[in-house]
Computed example of a mutant assay.
Amino acid sequence: MQTLKQLDTRGKRVLVRVDYNVPLKDGVIQDDTRVTASLDTIRQLLSGGASVVLMSHLGRPKAGPEAKFSLQPVAARLSELLGQPVQFLGGLPSSDETRAAVQAMQPGDVALLENVRFEAGEEKNDATLSAALAQLGDAFVLDAFGSAHRAHSSVSGVAAHLPHAGGLLLEAEVTALSKLLDAPEHPYVVIIGGAKVSDKLLVIENLLPTVDRMLIGGGMAYTFVKAQGGRIGKSIHEDDFLDKARELLGRYGDKIVLPTDTLAGDAFSNDANTRVVPTADIPDDWEGMDIGPDSQAAFTAALQGAKTVFWNGPMGVFEFQKFASGTNAIAKAVADLGAGTYSVIGGGDSVSAINKSGQADRVSHISTGGGASLELLEGKKLPGVEAMK
């Protein structure tokens, strides 16, 4: 992959694909982690005398421009973080109006385009749109790792038309995650959570031969427990994956660690009545909502001595405070491993948990890309990364 130091950007207008797909509520950014993550690349380009044209998507607009998916609030926040004005270009990125505004930029200027998914051809990797976007820059930098697994016009299509390179964030992400695949130091422990086995089956299958232990929590654990003959009440599970779960348990049962107790609720609500029960014996009208205290202790113990750790996905219904204890316990356990462990966290709830714990600076790497990090760890080639070669 070509990197920023290999790209001549001095005095040029550089088109940068960033990932500003941030959570918004009433037009206010709830978490600016992804905006902050882009600053190093922007500042390096500016220090080299470039002007910077930023483009990103936000949300999933269905029929062209929608006010609730506008990137205008991001431009305001970015201006605060950079300490300089950021021009927001509110027309379609491919419009004559936008092209004229970009061509008037001077070295040191920064502009943010409107949501690139307002363009009908973006997600189709439309060749005409890719060519139109390329007219906005003299060079192209991909720094949106969270979108690198998408073959979209603004991610990989535009790279065919301009000199290009991966930005500092993309380079850091690929380097950090590749360490989990290329001769990781042992003991190597992976923690996988989230609702569905189907979402992360390929990652599980690709990593199990390599890891020493795999701790499985969250909703997906109940598919494995049911595959063993356990009673899981109303807990979320996937009957279509019971055979696959049995196969994995048969082949890697000595590596897979499942929760032995569960904090169950009588409703899917933060106000539910709760009780701790064996994971394999959940009452019929109850559902597993979080790993229990014994499982938290067992998972923490299984992490001790690990030299490499990857964590993706919550241990329970993390959005309800009553059922966030297991996820928070894992966040603390991973942070407590210290500098002697190479620890990588990927996935929205996992990242949120480690940030809220106040211990994010005690892990080696926090990935900005959930889907992209998973696909890389599945062994897939990412279209955005491939386009930077």
Rank of each mutant, 00 (worst) to 15 (best):
T9N: 05
T9I: 15
R13G: 06
R13V: 03
L15E: 02
N21R: 05
L24G: 09
G27F: 07
T33M: 15
V35W: 01
T36S: 15
A37Q: 13
S38D: 04
I42H: 12
R43W: 00
R43N: 14
Q44W: 12
L45A: 06
S47G: 13
G48H: 10
V53Q: 02
M55F: 09
H57C: 08
H57V: 04
R60F: 01
P61Q: 07
K68V: 11
Q72N: 13
P73C: 03
A76M: 13
G83M: 10
Q87H: 15
Q87V: 15
L92G: 11
S94C: 05
V102F: 06
M105R: 10
D109T: 12
L112E: 02
G121L: 00
E123A: 05
D126E: 07
A127P: 13
A127K: 13
S130Q: 01
A131D: 05
Q135F: 00
V141R: 06
L142N: 15
A144F: 07
A151P: 05
H152N: 04
L162Q: 04
G166Y: 06
E171P: 03
V174M: 07
S178C: 08
K179N: 12
H186W: 08
V190Q: 08
G193L: 10
D199M: 02
K200R: 05
K200W: 08
K200G: 03
E205C: 09
N206S: 14
V211Q: 10
M214I: 15
M214E: 12
G218F: 07
G218K: 11
G218N: 10
I236W: 11
E238Y: 05
D243K: 14
R251G: 02
K255V: 06
V257N: 09
P259E: 07
D261T: 06
A264C: 02
A264I: 09
A267R: 14
A267C: 09
A267D: 13
S269V: 12
S269T: 13
N270M: 00
R275H: 14
V277M: 10
V277R: 07
I282L: 05
G288V: 07
M289E: 03
M289H: 05
D290L: 03
D294S: 14
A297L: 10
F299L: 05
T300D: 12
Q304H: 08
G305A: 08
G305M: 11
A306C: 14
K307A: 07
T308F: 08
F310C: 05
F310V: 12
G313M: 08
E319P: 12
Q321P: 00
A324I: 03
A324L: 03
S325L: 15
V334G: 08
V334P: 11
A335Q: 06
D336I: 10
G340P: 06
V344H: 06
I345V: 13
G346P: 07
D349M: 06
A353Y: 05
I354P: 12
K356P: 00
G358P: 04
Q359T: 14
D361P: 02
S364I: 02
G371H: 01
L374S: 04
L374N: 03
E375Q: 14
E378R: 02
E378M: 01
G379A: 04
K380P: 02
P383G: 01
P383E: 00
G384R: 01
V385C: 00
M388N: 02
